[in-house]
Each structure stands twice: as C-alpha cells, then as structure tokens.
C-alpha cells in the first residue's frame, strides 16, 4: 500500500497507519509526512481545553454533530495522559463520542501523552497534518485536563475553546494565569448547574481585564462567553457560530496562513532540539561523566565541559 497516496484519497486505514508511524517515531512516518505536507494547511484546527471534569469529550461529541450538520468532515485527536510509571495509558475519550463511530465523515484518534508535557502528545501536530491531508475540514484537538500553564494547544490550534464549569470553586483562579489570556471562545458547560451565575461573573471579569490589557495592534477579536449543556446539545450551535466567525476572520485577514507558518517553524525548531539532544546524549564524554559521578567536579562544571567536548555533528 502506498500510504501517502492512499491517505490523500481519504483511505482511513492508510491515514491511521501514518499516524501510528509518526506517534511511534517510525522513520516511515516522516517520509509520508514529507509527501503529503504540500496538501496541508486547509483545515481549521480547534483546540478544546479546560480543567479535568469540565466535559471536554462530551462537548466535543456535541460539536462534531453540529459540524456534520453544517456539512463538514471532522477529525478528532483526543489526548489522555500516559502513566509516567508504566508508560501505559487508558484512552477513554471515544466512549463519549460513540455515536460518530460509523460516520465515514468522522475520524477519531485517541493518543497518549507518552511523556510529553504541556497538555498535548508529542505527535499531536503531526496527527493534525495527516488529518488535514486526508481532507477533514475541521480538526478538534481535545487536550488532557489542564491547569495553569499547559497551553501548548494555543500554538497548535487556530481557534482555542476554553471550557469551564460552575462549582469548581477556585477553578477560575486555577485557569486564569494561562488559559484566560489565550482562549478565543469561552464556554461555561453544565450551565444548568447551581453556581452558574457566579462563575459567569468571574469569567466576565477576567475577560474584561484581558480586553483592557490588549495591545492596540493585536488581532481584532473579543472572545465570546457562551453557556452550554453539552449532554443535552444545548448551546452548541452558538459555539460553532463563534468558531466559524473566528475562522473566517483569521482567513480574511491572512492571519490563518501566518499562524500555520509559525506553527511549522516552531515544530521545526522543536524537532531540531530533540535531535540535537539525542546526538549530544550519545556523544557525552565518558571521562567527564565519570568525574562528576566520583564527585571530583560539580554538575555545572561537568555540563560546561560536556558541551565544550562535543565533537562536531556530521551530516548523516
């Protein structure tokens, strides 16, 4: 099977295999990605993030339905944490999206973080590119439950939805540092619950402060704050209206393409860093390492010497 060609024509088996190779760091993955890269850059990537228990999967499920109603093909990347102890993971986000399993216009992929910090898996970016190349119009990326600074999603997504819920107490406190500054659409899920009004006021205040602090040359977008009850599909059309508006505005202003470009640049730098680290680790001077292990030199001195003694990297 010519995986690259097959996935470009929408072959699910081929696309799924390419994603697996990329996730596994199998070198065939990079080859496929090179072939299909010119066919990417079209899909709107929408991040779905918020604290654990906010209803990210349930909301994603409802938003898939709404996107399908609007005639779009939908890819989903659902990320769950990998156990740092065993390296294993239980990926259960599909359970709440089961109604879309047999829809040929929907592709759902569950991934483990595999040691990657920041709320995404190390392969999330690559997976989005493959889904984009397969012709999915919209890609939802559901992050692990995040706290304050797991905001990698913002660098990846064109549009980021931040989900809060009433009654988590210090929740706004917990997310304001990172997420409140970066979200494009804010949703208070489980809006039928007690405490909704208080949570709404907290969010509004935060958004107001953010608006005040916005630089004059920033992208002209005021994040809406929307209520939803995802389990009953309530408020979902309004959310997709907002992500549609945001997407149109990005495309019309040229910002959409600029964001995609910045993303690929960041990815290239990240891959370079990863590769350089691997090479440096392989070539670390054994003598220096023995010296620091014997406590003859301190770790700072050892690190300085290790960098100094790195042999020049040869082009492979």
């Amino acid at each position: 099977m010519d995986v690259a060609r097959e996935l470009l024509s929408g072959n699910v088996l081929a696309g799924a295999r390419a994603i697996r190779w990329l996730d596994d760091r199998d070198r065939r993955g990079a080859q496929v990605l090179s072939s299909v890269f010119p066919h990417t850059g079209r899909a709107q990537i929408i991040g779905v993030t918020g604290p654990p228990g906010a209803g990210k999967s349930t909301l994603a499920n409802a938003m898939i339905t709404e996107q399908r109603r609007r005639g779009r093909r939908v890819g989903v990347v659902a990320i769950d944490p990998t156990s740092p102890f065993s390296g294993g993971a239980i990926l259960g986000d599909r359970v709440r999206m089961a109604r879309h399993t047999l829809d040929p216009g929907v592709f759902i992929r569950s991934v483990g973080t595999r040691g990657h910090a920041g709320g995404l898996s190390r392969s999330t970016h690559d997976t989005c590119l493959i889904l984009d190349a397969m012709g999915y119009d919209v890609i939802f990326v559901e992050t692990v439950g995040v706290g304050q600074d797991e905001i990698d999603i913002v660098a990846l997504a064109h549009t980021t939805i931040i989900i809060g819920v009433p009654g988590l107490g210090d929740e706004v406190q917990a997310i304001k540092a990172g997420l409140m500054e970066v979200g494009d659409v804010f949703v208070i899920n489980k809006a039928d619950r007690e405490g909704y009004e208080a949570t709404r006021q907290q969010f509004e205040l935060m958004l107001h402060l953010r608006e005040e602090a916005r630089p004059a040359d920033a992208f002209d977008w005021s994040p809406p704050l929307l209520p939803a009850v995802a389990t009953r599909d309530e408020g979902i059309a309004g959310i997709i209206d907002a992500t549609d508006r945001h997407g149109s505005k990005l495309r019309d202003s040229g910002e959409f393409a600029r964001m995609s470009g910045r993303r690929e640049r960041a990815q290239a730098l990240a891959l370079m860093g990863e590769e350089m680290l691997r090479i440096a680790m392989e070539r670390a001077d054994a003598e220096v390492l023995s010296a620091v292990e014997a406590r003859q030199i301190d770790p700072y001195e050892a690190a300085r010497l290790l960098v100094h003694r790195l042999s020049p990297v040869q082009e492979e």
Binding site: L13, S86, G88, A89, G92, R94, A98, I108, R109
Partner: peptide, 26 residues
C-alpha cells in the same frame, strides 16, 4: 496499562461494525 500498553476503551453496547471501525481508526 500497568504492563505499558495503550488501551483504547470504546464503551458499552458496541456492534461488530463499531468495533471494526474504531480498531481501524485507532
């Protein structure tokens, strides 16, 4: 999971077609 595997759980009341479709996507 304890043995270091990634487990994808698809939930209850699945039909053979649903299981096959999920297995391929994943």
């Amino acid at each position: 999971r304890e043995a270091g595997m990634e487990v994808i759980f698809t939930g209850l009341k699945q039909t053979p077609a649903m299981v096959a479709s999920a297995a391929i996507q994943e």
